[in-house]
Simulated scan of single mutants.
Amino acid sequence: MQYRSLDHFLNEGKDALVKGPIALVLVEDDVEVDTTLRHHQQSGFAQVIAFMPQSFDLARDVAETVIRIDYEMHHDAAMETAINRVIDAAPNLWIYYCYNAEYLFYPFCETRTIGEMLAFHTEERRSAMLTYVIDLYAEDLTQYPDAVSLDRAHLDRSGYYALARPDGTPANHPKDRQLDFFGGLRWRFEEHVPAARRKIDRISLFRAKPGLRIREDHTFNEEEYNTYSCPWHHNITAAICSFRTAKALKKNPGSKFDIQTFKWHNSAPFEWHSRQLLDLGLIEPGQWF
């Protein structure tokens, strides 16, 4: 089903927001759109909704099974506007969001659906889940100049760290159970990345509620949503394996010609399996097994 605008969808297609979890895919360009949508369908989302320009094409099997909303991502507050309006229309539903060429991985995702994981997470009285954006990049930028290759994808196996998140008061106390996470290409090539965009943490899975708002920095106006765990033990975390940063670094004229390869001594082939991410400590199962 295709809708000509977000207003059209919210007026005519709200039945799609009755059952969750739902996935929102924000399409910025025409790279790996079909594979992104298929990946999240296979994860078990009740609905996959693509926000994408009208000029982009979809494979027939995808076009017949996803909800498509004509939407331009290159205007101010495009991400926040789309997500916040869906939040208002889908109270109490679990919502996930990502961009094209990004793929969600969570513990044991090969054998368990996203609904099963979120059911457990809900039982632990959690309404949001921390996800790390793990950069993927092609092994050979000469062969793959846009830095995207599913078959030859690599990731950094180390170089990730966290800093306390200050509360913004004059004393700059650290916020409770909140950290700013860094690593990947945004860390290794930080001279090409604005300081405000170097973090790799994102609250990509959350439960909608009245008044909830996502902000430009991918945090929410309710502080508990921004925490990495509950006060009494560790919780599940997930990863979004993403070509987005690699694409941007090779597309931006300021960095395109300065970067000949993304590989370094800590690069490893991406195995497209949650076990690799668990072994590297990039996701954790918490109390779920």
Rank of each mutant, 00 (worst) to 15 (best):
I240M: 12
G13C: 04
F182L: 09
D34I: 10
K250D: 00
I283T: 07
E116D: 11
G44M: 11
D7K: 05
A153N: 09
A248P: 00
C230F: 00
A59F: 02
P53M: 00
S5K: 08
A46D: 13
I200K: 02
V66M: 02
R165F: 11
K247N: 05
L163C: 10
L58D: 09
H233K: 12
T131M: 12
L185M: 06
I95V: 15
V25P: 09
P174W: 14
P21H: 12
F105S: 10
F220E: 03
R275K: 14
W232P: 00
R112L: 10
D15F: 11
L37I: 12
T237L: 05
F206T: 02
D151W: 02
H192R: 00
H154A: 03
L185A: 04
T65E: 12
P91C: 10
E271K: 12
Y137E: 04
I22R: 10
P231V: 10
T113K: 15
V18I: 14
T113I: 09
A164W: 02
V193F: 07
W264I: 00
C98P: 03
W288Q: 06
L205E: 01
R85F: 07
K263T: 14
F206W: 06
Q276T: 01
S255Y: 03
A268L: 14
G211L: 06
R126D: 08
P21E: 11
S5P: 12
L37K: 08
D88T: 06
T111K: 13
C98K: 01
A16G: 05
D15C: 01
D88P: 00
A147S: 14
